[in-house]
Every structure is written in C-alpha cells, then in structure tokens.
C-alpha cells in the first residue's frame, strides 16, 4: 500500500540494539531465578535420595526406641523431634512477648528519637553469631536462670538452649511484626482516636487485629528459625552423640539439627554408607519439610495482609 502523503509515516518499531539489550537483561534475571530453583531441587533431590536409602535399609522398629543413638543403630525419631519442638516452644515463650512487645513499642509508642537508637540495638542483637549465644547460654543463662528455676538442672539443658534461641529469634519476630503494624494505615488509627478511643484501645483493638496476619507470619518465621537453629542447641542442649527420650526441659536433650551436626562433625567420622550417615539425610529431609511447610504457611498469612491494603 503506497501512501501519497508528503510526510513520512511514524516509525514505532523501536531501536534494534535496545531491544536486544532488553532481551539479554531479561534472560540474565531469568537465569538467576532458574539457578535458585535448580539449587532447591538439588537439595531436595540429594536429601530424598539418601533418605530413601536409609529408610529402605532399616529395621523400622529402630525408629521407635528409647533414644537417638545412631552409632548403635537406634534411630528414635520422636526423641529428636521432641527435642526440636521443646526448644522451639521455649524459644517462642521467650521471643513472643519480647518481640511483640518491642514491636508494639517501636511502632506505636516510641518517639522518633527513641526509635533511632532502639532499632540499631535490636539489629545488633540479630547480628550476634549463634556460637556466641551458645556460649552465653552456657556461661550465663544456665547458672543464673535455669539452675535457679530447677534444682535438678545441670549446665546443659534444653531450657538454657531454648532461652538463648529465643533471644536469637526475638529480633526477627520484632522486625517482621513491627513492619506489619507500621503497615496499618494511619487513617485507621485516626478514625479510632476520632471516635474517642484511648491509645491502648486503639493499639489492641485496631492496630493489632489489622496487623494480625503479619504478626502471625512473624511468629511462624520465628518458629521456623528456632527449629533450624543448630549451633546454640549443639552447644547448650548438651547431648553430644546421642540422648534418651526426654520431656523435661531442664534436662539435656537432642534436636534434629544438633543430631545432624553431631553426626557430621563427630570425632569418629561417619562418612560412608552406614545407616548413621544416611540418617543425617533423613533428619535433614524432615527438617526441610517442616520449615518448608511453616514458610508456606506464613506466606499465606502475609498474602492475606497484602490483600487488605
């Protein structure tokens, strides 16, 4: 079709080099995303493979015995599972009030000047290496708190480790729930004050419920972190090598993570295809599935928050 106008038609096709550059950049980012997916799949794959081998070659009755003694072929899952859950429980008992309290204070009560030095302190807490916390658990938490609460407690206990993990998790809970609370629009607070609500009423009946999803997400993340903590529990929970099934938090106990690290760095090497080695993978898979499940759960909560605003 020939045009008989004197002015040329407008060229909207865009410059070739720019389009090529855009395509390259897009591929670069897609590649980065692909790498993370691949890595995750590799992790899962390696765990599943060896875990399956472990389970197949196993006398299933050894999964329900008196304790976790891998070098003796005793793989009582409920011991390590209980240990993990107890530590997580103690940690959350510590982290929930401290974390939420700090978050409420920072979000609703603190003046800008106070926030300016309080937040960095929380961040310092978050940055403490877990080995240092483990040491702190043994040298301070244990004698000053745990042993005072229970006369039977020794230096090593799940309580001491749990408290230390709680301190570790507090900044995470505080940070995420503070973000959730600050995300509540100021307009809602204004509406509440406008109706004659006191500050505490506004915080508890408007801000907190509105931020509930985000706060729940922070708690779930906290639990997930507590479950995955290795160093502190390896040092302070006190069960090197193996342990008996234990309910009492004032006694030493064994968590999945500590069990894995004990197996991997134990004095007698566990390398090779012995079931002890393979039990590592089994625990690892369990751990992975638990934290995956928790993270998916917390994600659903976070998405609920985003829907509202």
């Amino acid at each position: 079709m020939t045009s008989d106008t004197t002015t040329p038609a407008v060229d909207l096709t865009g410059s070739r080099p720019r389009l090529r550059r855009e395509r390259r950049v897009r591929r670069l980012f897609a590649g980065a995303a692909a790498v993370s997916i691949v890595v995750s799949l590799l992790i899962v794959g390696s765990l599943v493979g060896e875990a399956w081998t472990f389970l197949r070659g196993l006398d299933l009755s050894s999964l329900w015995t008196m304790g976790w003694f891998p070098r003796r072929g005793l793989f009582d899952v409920k011991t390590v599972l209980t240990g993990t859950l107890l530590i997580a429980l103690v940690a959350m008992v510590v982290a929930t009030p401290l974390g939420l309290g700090a978050a409420i204070y920072l979000s609703e009560y603190a003046r800008p000047r106070a926030r300016r030095w309080l937040k960095p302190i929380l961040e310092v807490l978050a940055g403490i290496p877990s080995v240092v916390l483990g040491y702190f658990a043994l040298t301070w938490i244990s004698p000053n708190i745990v042993m005072r609460l229970s006369s039977h407690a020794g230096v090593f206990s799940m309580a001491a480790a749990g408290i230390a993990v709680g301190i570790l998790v507090t900044p995470l809970v505080a940070s995420v729930s503070e973000d959730a609370m600050r995300a509540v629009p100021a307009a809602l607070r204004e509406a509440s004050y406008g109706l004659g609500a006191k500050k505490a009423t506004t915080v508890t009946r408007i801000v907190f419920p509105a931020a509930a999803s985000g706060i729940m997400a922070s708690l779930i993340l906290g639990v997930s972190r507590a479950i995955g903590e290795t160093m502190v529990v390896a040092m302070a929970a006190g069960a090197v090598g193996g342990s008996l099934f234990q309910w009492n938090i004032f006694q030493p106990g064994q968590t999945m993570t500590a069990a894995m690290s004990a197996l991997a760095i134990g004095s007698d090497q566990v390398a090779g295809s012995t079931s002890a080695f393979q039990s590592l993978f089994f625990l690892g898979l369990l751990l992975f599935l638990m934290t995956l499940g928790l993270n998916l759960l917390s994600d659903r909560f976070v998405r609920k928050v985003r829907e509202k605003y």
Binding site: A187, E190, A191, G194, L195, A197, T201, A210
Partner: peptide, 24 residues
Amino acid sequence: GMVFQKPNPFPKSIYDNIAFGPRI
C-alpha cells in the same frame, strides 16, 4: 465526631465498625 477525607472504615464487619465507638 469526625469524618475524614478518604473513607477509613476498620477492617471489620459493617456491624462491628458501627459498634466500635459505643463499645469502647
């Protein structure tokens, strides 16, 4: 009472929005 520029109902039910002021 005050009504603001952008409507700012609470993320609650219609009933609970109205009942909030009297309840507290």
